[in-house]
């Protein structure tokens, strides 16, 4: 069997809306990926600790709380501190268009907003994951 892409699907922030994270986790699974799902209300530290221990190739976070401009750069920072900057870092959720440029500047490789077909996220990961 071909080596599956390992993805951490995590939900930082204090909102409890995990439907999106679950849908995307399921889509990644059906695309043949190994998805580590860590559940709600994760701190950046917890997310990065999980990413390191699980040795994932992709960190995918779902955030709908509005705290993306604080939490996502923090996650990227911690990944850098752990020398895990090579992990592909993507985000999804309710994120205003105006904030996307800032997030990309801070190292988020892609931002998937509501209405994005799951296949697009899958394709993006397949194309950009470093092997």
């Amino acid at each position: 069997m071909q080596r599956p892409i390992r993805v951490l699907v995590a939900k930082p922030g204090l909102d409890g809306h995990d439907r999106g994270a679950k849908v995307i986790a399921r889509a990644f699974r059906d695309a043949g990926m190994e998805v580590i799902y860590t559940g709600l209300r994760q701190t950046p530290e917890q997310i990065v600790a999980a990413a390191i221990q699980e040795d994932v190739e992709v960190v995918a976070v779902s955030i709908l709380s509005g705290a993306h401009s604080t939490l996502l750069p923090r996650i990227k920072e911690l990944l850098k501190e752990e020398n895990a900057d090579d992990m592909l870092f993507v985000a999804g959720g309710v994120i205003p268009d105006d904030d996307i440029a800032f997030l990309k500047e801070k190292g988020v490789a892609a931002v998937f907003t509501p209405g994005t077909p799951t296949t697009l996220a899958v394709e993006f990961i397949r194309e950009h994951v470093k092997r």
Binding site: M1, Q2, P4, A25, R26, F28, R29, D30, A31, G32, M33, E34, V35, I36, Y37, T38, G39, A50, E54
Partner: peptide, 11 residues
């Protein structure tokens, strides 16, 4: 079927 999985024990 897909070779994928959801590993959810960390929750």
């Amino acid at each position: 079927f897909s070779g994928g999985s959801i590993l959810g024990d960390r929750i």
